[in-house]
Design a protein around this nucleic acid. Structure first.
Length: 492
RNA sequence: GCGAAAGUAGCUCAGCUGGUAGAGCGCGACCUUGCCAAGGUCGAGGUCGCGGGUUCGAACCCCGUCUUUCGCUCCA
């Protein structure tokens, strides 16, 4: 048996086609030509995604003594985003140079010019320029900002020309209104990250849960970003789901926890079946305004190693900022050292959709089986049994002679324990293939011997080998193999 | 946002120089068969992404637009 995996760009196309054809991912509103960077999960996709969310949730909360979950709402008080820095840093006025095709932040161009003026000893002029720019930006006067760039005769460092486009505001947060009357409505945002829902509930959870530092709060939820450019299928979407955990620690201990969580999270991805050589850490060179250390866990997607999970040491930036803006103390009293402090935070944040894509890409297997004239291609999805959308398909070898009825009896017996499907249409080989294509790990076949001795064959997806077992043992044997415990035991 | 390529049945794709839409696979029913995508018969499924234009006539030519992929750019 020879495994063949294409690393080329066509690999992603094959996976996208497969995802659509077999009910994993559909383009959103496809009958209206789709909506850019938005996708829907189909009947098999939702099962896989739910399994991923469940395994993450349990690994975080059930397996950790000191992590609990919450589910915060998508709408949050507008000041939340002021405190988090998103209002300021998620709103960039951008300008393009038509000759070099390069894009710049308009405010950065002017700030650079201001610094240059100052170097030339024209401090007054520099200050006036900054004030003028601030006035324009506050008023939303983008044309005014462009005029400043032109008046200053700022040119593109690449093309050396001043052939500028208009200044456009790229607001990465989606906004909407709350309130019935639009004039009275106040602007609110769809959250661009789920983390803030945890920070604003930090004390609620700590007090009601009698949590002692170090402890964590986990959450799974949707977040929204108005991406300028969306690429690579479900890798970058405008509406996406995050699975993240904020871990609150005593200041000064954050780097130890950062190292611990790095290791824990890497182990998790490997336990799901992602191979070690397809995963790597990537340290951030440039740190975000809130972080003092940041690393990505990258997966080798068909389009290269890309971020799947981020692990950030967020310091006390968020809680401190919320404390300042809300004027509510965000302190924790640490009885061990008899001190009040704002905890430091270590965040682990994985994109549920990216993990889904990684698992799907990794599972997609093209394989040549048989030899000589018997040789043929087969495709199957090699999911960990605990993650597979369907765990077992029960197939009567033929429809007649009571085999179908017998098979349906078996389905009735085991369908409470795990996701079971029944298929009697077409030749047995075709039905095996149907299950391979959606990654079902086991096929149970009812044949003539079943009618005599109450045994069935059970076929393994990867090896295609069969084993005969008693119907009475089915539930336990399959149940054991498809249990998430098979993943959890690798985490210890 | 810029540049390039693409868009025809669920999927993969044909479709000549402009002349009223095709195949394979898949799907459904029935027959035959019975362990790895078997055969037969019948059938469902398409305003050729969408909107304009040119033309007697457009899947095909022109313009616009949407979507996707790739390269830039962006990614607190």
């Amino acid at each position: 048996m020879e495994n063949k995996k294409t690393d080329t760009a066509s690999a992603l196309k094959d996976i996208i086609s497969h995802a659509k054809e077999y009910g994993f991912v559909f383009p959103s509103s496809e009958i209206y030509d789709g909506l850019q960077a938005v996708y829907d999960y189909g009947q098999n996709g939702v099962e896989l995604k739910n399994n991923l969310k469940t395994v993450w949730w349990k690994a975080m909360t059930m397996l950790q003594d000191n992590v609990v979950g919450i589910d915060a709402s998508i709408f949050m008080h507008p000041l939340t985003w002021k405190a988090s820095g998103h209002v300021d840093s998620f709103n960039d006025p951008m300008i393009d140079n038509r000759d070099s095709k390069k894009r710049y932040r308009a405010d950065t161009l002017l700030e650079d010019r201001s610094a240059l003026l100052e170097d030339q000893g024209k401090a007054d002029e520099a200050k006036a320029l900054m004030q003028h720019m601030a006035k324009c930006l506050d008023a939303g006067d983008l044309e005014g900002v462009r005029q400043l760039i032109i008046d200053q005769k700022i040119t593109c460092p690449v093309s050396n020309t001043a052939n500028w486009t208009e200044v456009r505001q790229f607001n990465l947060m989606f906004s909407t209104q709350v309130g019935a009357v639009s004039e009275d409505a106040s602007l609110i945002y769809l959250r661009p990250e789920t983390a803030q829902g945890i920070f604003v509930n930090f004390l609620n959870v700590q007090k009601t849960g009698r949590m002692k530092i170090p402890f964590g709060i986990a959450q799974i939820g949707k977040a929204f970003r108005n991406e300028i450019v969306a690429r690579n299928f479900i890798f970058r979407m405008r509406e996406f789901e995050q699975m993240e955990m904020q871990f609150f620690v005593r200041p000064g201990t954050e780097m130890e926890w950062y190292a611990t969580w790095k290791e824990t999270r890497m182990k998790f991805h490997q336990a799901l079946g992602l191979p070690a050589d397809s995963l790597k850490f990537h340290d951030h060179d440039k740190l975000a305004h809130y972080a003092n250390a940041a690393v990505d866990i990258e997966y080798k997607f068909p389009f290269g190693f890309k971020e799947m999970e981020g692990i950030h040491s967020r310091t006390d930036f968020d809680l401190k900022s919320h404390q300042e803006l809300s004027k509510k103390k965000q302190q924790y009293f640490d009885p061990e050292i008899n001190e009040n402090y704002i905890p430091y935070v270590v965040e682990t944040s994985v994109g549920a959709d990216r993990l889904f894509l990684a698992i799907l890409c990794n599972a997609y297997t093209e394989e040549t089986v048989g030899e000589g004239e018997q040789e043929k291609q087969r495709v199957y999805l090699n999911f960990h049994p605990a993650l597979a959308p369907v765990k077992v398909a029960v197939l009567p070898l033929v429809k007649k002679d009571g085999l179908a009825e017998k098979a349906q009896e078996i389905v009735k017996e085991i369908k409470f324990a795990f996701n079971t499907t029944y298929d009697e249409g077409g030749a047995i080989g075709k039905r095996y293939t149907r299950q391979d294509l959606i990654g079902t790990p086991y096929c149970v076949v009812v044949d003539y011997q079943t009618m005599e001795d109450q045994t069935v064959t059970i076929r393994d997806r990867n090896t295609m080998s069969q084993e005969r077992i008693s119907i009475a043992d089915l539930k336990e044997k399959i149940g054991h193999a498809v249990s998430m415990e098979r993943i959890f035991e690798k985490l210890l």
